Simulated assay, not measured.
Amino acid sequence: MTSRVTFVSPATSPSLRRARFYDGDSIDDSGAARAREAAGSLPVAARVVVSPSVRCRETATALGLDGVETPELDGLDVGRWRGRTLEAVAAAEPEAVALWLTDPGSAPHGGESVRVLCGKVGRWLEEAAAVEGRVLAVVEPEVVRAAITQALDVPAAVFWRLDVPPLTVTELSGRAGRWNLRLGRPLGEPDVN
């Protein structure tokens, strides 16, 4: 059986536009409009899941999807940095930010490490591989990054090298524990495969 997991990143929000660690804000009007325009462009799925964040739930709703909130797909917990800009944190705690960006096992913010997130998403991906039919997941960008590192079995340090723009589709397909990656299709563009 071929397993298929389609990830959709959320629409833009004020925190994303300001390079601020996500703090629970809603998607903005332009992001919501883009998501509504793309409604109906996604492949049919046997199962739809959503990160528990506000912006993922709102993106799913704007896309016309009714997904199950899945705690294992929650975004990276950045602890006390939540709501602060990366620039402000880097100015106040340059050593902590440098450590965080170079050591996937570190969590100087008091939240979770990239390595912990990758492990959590990897376990979820193993379960998703057993689903008959496609799984569609509206998830935080860091969840997409974690899924890619796990699916391709690359070091967790690769996590920071992966850009996941808003409202894009990243697809994994495979069988017998071997995944293939298709990434970066803008939401709303037809699937040519």
Rank of each mutant, 00 (worst) to 15 (best):
A62H: 05
E95Y: 02
H109G: 11
S15E: 13
R36N: 05
H109E: 04
A96F: 04
P71I: 06
D25Y: 00
Y22F: 14
V5D: 03
P52N: 11
L86D: 00
P71H: 06
T12M: 07
D29Q: 13
A98K: 12
R57N: 00
A46C: 08
D77Q: 06
T102Q: 15
A88W: 00
G67P: 08
T61N: 03
G67W: 03
P94R: 06
L73T: 01
G40K: 10
L65W: 05
D25N: 10
H109K: 03
R80I: 02
V54H: 03
L16A: 14
G111L: 07
V54N: 11
R84N: 07
A107W: 01
E95C: 00
V54E: 13
E37H: 02
E95Q: 14
T59L: 10
A88R: 14
S9N: 05
R47A: 03
D23Y: 00
R34A: 15
A92R: 13
W100E: 01
G79M: 02
S53F: 06
E69A: 15
P94G: 08
T6R: 11
P52C: 10
L65G: 02
R34C: 09
G105L: 03
L63T: 12
S30I: 14
T61G: 10
E87T: 13
G40Y: 04
A60Q: 07
C56P: 00
E58K: 14
V5S: 07
S15D: 15
D25R: 15
L86M: 11
A60S: 08
